[in-house]
Amino acid sequence: MVMILGVDPVLVLGGTVAVALFGMLAGLVFMGIERKFAARMQARIGPPIRQPFRDVAKLLSKDSIVPENAIPCLFNMAPVLALASSIVILLYIPLGGFLPVLAGYGDLILVMYLLTVPALALVAGGFASGSPYATVGSQREMVTMMSYELPLAIAVIAIAWRLAAAGIADPFSLATIAGTASGITIWSVVGPLGIIGCVLLLIVLTWVTPAELSRVPCDTPEAETELCGGLLVEYSGRNLALFYLAQGVKTVAMAALAVALFLPWNISWFVALSPNAALAADFAFFLLKILAVIFFSVSVIRVGMARFRITHVVSIYWGYLGGLGLLGLVFMVLDAYIGGGGVL
């Protein structure tokens, strides 16, 4: 077997292609199902689940128009960057029973950085569009990004810190957090106080997801009725299709991150199965968990409230959610030192 820099190129390449395909397919399917959920909650029928596939197919068949005022290279590069970086995130997140393709080459901190890249690509594309709507949208996207980073970081770090406090090696590795190999998760480590902390952090992450994905109430950068689509207003054809795919992949990545952090259980931990059956069962269960996360943190939130103003986004994410996250962190700390949560 040929190894380059300690990596098996066939495995990594094959894995990357597989994850990319999975990410795009699952992204579109989940977006279709999500639209069905939202429609159902609004007493509508909604489009068929295959609708996102049709949308992408139609967009791909259309011309991509570059506006006169745009900076063409940046304008055309942004969608590719957004899609590519969204797929890269997936490479670091465990998918059901499968370890991350690039396990051991990056950890949670890297994932947090990577999560900002698709958003930055959107911002670059928006500024490069040369339209006032897109410019305002880009400014708002940047502000939104800065707002949700704090609660997201708190949630992620609190979990990893608690695992470290429990004496678990390599606590920032997502494979460790998800307990893919060991079966040890955050829930089996913490005591009662820590469970309160975990629930608070779960709430924080649930609310960060719509901001990360620019959905109502945090869709201020796109805000159809205000900015006619904001960042994406000048995009069309293939470029828009790429952004659309990136949005789908990002949805899966965010949900998979939430699953890895807070809902890491696998079926094979509880039921004895043959290795292949276990992989399949775990993967199916993983998809179900993703669906559940999407239902609560995307669908319910987006149909249940009005869009925030950009100033609200800042005050709510820095103030309320940041505070809630810190409270969760305090509970985790208390749990580790006083509550007598099990140190394994």
Binding site: R40, M41, Q42, V300, G304
Partner: peptide, 10 residues
Amino acid sequence: VLRQFFKRPA
């Protein structure tokens, strides 16, 4: 909306 989720669409 959660109640509506289990009802028939209009």
